[in-house]
Amino acid sequence: MTKLHPLLLAAALLAPAMPVGLRADTPAEVEAATLDPEHLDAGWRDLFATLAGHGAVASTFTERRWFSVRKEPVVLRGELRHSPERGLSLRYTEPEEQLMIIDAQGILLRNAAGRSRALKSDPRAPQIDALLLPVLRFDLAALDRTFEIRGTRDGSRWRLDFTPRTPELARTLGQLAVSGEGATVRQLAFSRGPKQRVEVAIETTQTGASFSADEMKRFFR
């Protein structure tokens, strides 16, 4: 039986926050170079500092999931909220209302009726918050421990490729890529092959967002 890998689940979630499809508007054609956190050039250093300093983020997204058994991708739409303190909240609005929260306590699913379900995963698997929340925070030091990071820039456009350092993580998570333009994240993608991938296109983005108490209660744990 295939195990329930929270990382894959997170991939689906994070895709909104940043799925990776290597689209034409990303600088894929430019040779990516390995990034060493200790020896970043000023351009990358500034970009990471800017992205990490965004604080809370609110976005809308469109997620496309490719399955090997489907002819066309499954399309989901929703809202993304990221709070550096409270974690990531993905509210899917189409095709059905569903909320997913990834935070230091793990993954929580909440359906339209308000019923919550914590997803418990194989305890042997790496911790999802420890692996993926640093991606959202652009915590380079934490990311470097888990991933080999390669980056490429073409003018204001940039792309970061994260390759898991362990085979287990590579098997469950696949490749992760984040791309954007200037200080804006445009796309995030997870890929385990041409027929198994998730792409999330970030649409409107509001950085430095502040969430009301009601939003905190509704969208976070």
Binding site: M1, L4, A12, S68, V69, V74, Y92, R117, L119
Partner: peptide
């Protein structure tokens, strides 16, 4: 397939389109 946990079962789906195992996993979480 539009649900969040579907990604975790994508390798299993060709052998279990009835979703027997995913349903059980959801119940015994």
């Amino acid at each position: 397939l539009a649900r969040p946990e579907a990604m975790a079962f994508q390798d299993l789906i060709p052998a279990d389109p009835l979703l027997l195992v995913p349903d059980l996993v959801a119940q015994v979480q």
